[in-house]
Design a binder for these strands. Structure first.
Lengths: 140, 140
DNA sequence: TTAATTCCTACTAAATTACTTGACTTTCTC
DNA sequence: GAGAAAGTCAAGTAATTTAGTAGGAATTAA
């Protein structure tokens, strides 16, 4: 039940973008250097983030990434959902195609646990906005 | 952010024990057969469960395992904590020995997210008692 | 005595994670 | 127009974790 570096790096990177002046963009190199991350690895995380419409890229020199929506409208749930694949603690509570071997024989006695956990995790993360995280940050 | 089979199998197995008559014990073979689990694998999960004082074993023929406390006093948090190692989504919020590389240079801007998530997960899971799960179960 | 069971140790195949490498494309600046 | 600074794309890979398997020793009810 650990968040992987994908989620951790991605969230930190997007807070960085959110903390930036409006319409200024940051290069992955800058973010990676500042946080001690691998630039190439971070690059891979930005592919799905861009595809999900959370960030926009500017190519070429002096280019980089910026948020594609206001920081108030992007939550930790949005980001982690994209980078971790899903917020659910098991496949059985969010993947319609998943066939639980236990479900067929009435032996799964704990699905309600995963359901409650999923709901709770989703609620918590969707109340956390990037703008909140920027506000928490100590001034540099 | 997925619960592994350790946690899933272990929780299901303990609900099974909780559903059993008081002071009767169940063998791992019975549980494993009923749930389509590997008996040897399940056996490995019961080592830490026993060490944590959640189950007691009876050796020899007609032996097995039973809960070592009433089902009302054992929560999903107790079990998952033991089997998953911890309920925290990152090492930085529960492991005092963990040194976050970001913390030293004030670049970690998201610790509050993991802290809130950890608190939420712990709260949810600690309100779920084995006795609740047994009560939910359809009668066989 | 035998069969059922826990206990214990070791091994292993597959998947996942966290990268690295390198070539290619776009665009700003000089 | 050249060169450098970026994003884009496709592979490869070492280390770790996961989910088991395998097999024997110790214990105990019948």
């Amino acid at each position: 039940m650990k968040i992987s570096t994908r989620g951790r790096y991605g969230l930190r990177a997007l807070v960085e973008l959110a903390a930036c002046e409006t319409d200024k963009c940051l290069s992955l190199r800058e973010i990676a250097d500042r946080h001690g991350m691998s630039e190439n690895y971070l690059e891979q995380l930005f592919v799905p983030l861009k595809k999900a419409g959370l960030v926009a890229s500017i190519r070429g020199a002096q280019g980089g990434y910026k948020l594609s929506r206001p920081a108030e409208t992007i939550t930790a749930a949005d980001i982690l959902q994209v980078l971790e694949g899903s917020l659910s603690p098991t496949d059985c509570v969010d993947n319609a195609d998943y066939e639980c071997p236990a479900a067929t024989c009435d032996t799964c006695n704990v699905k309600s646990v995963w359901q409650k956990l999923y709901t709770g995790i989703s609620e918590i993360l969707s109340t956390i906005r990037l703008s909140d995280l920027v506000a928490e940050q100590p001034p540099i």
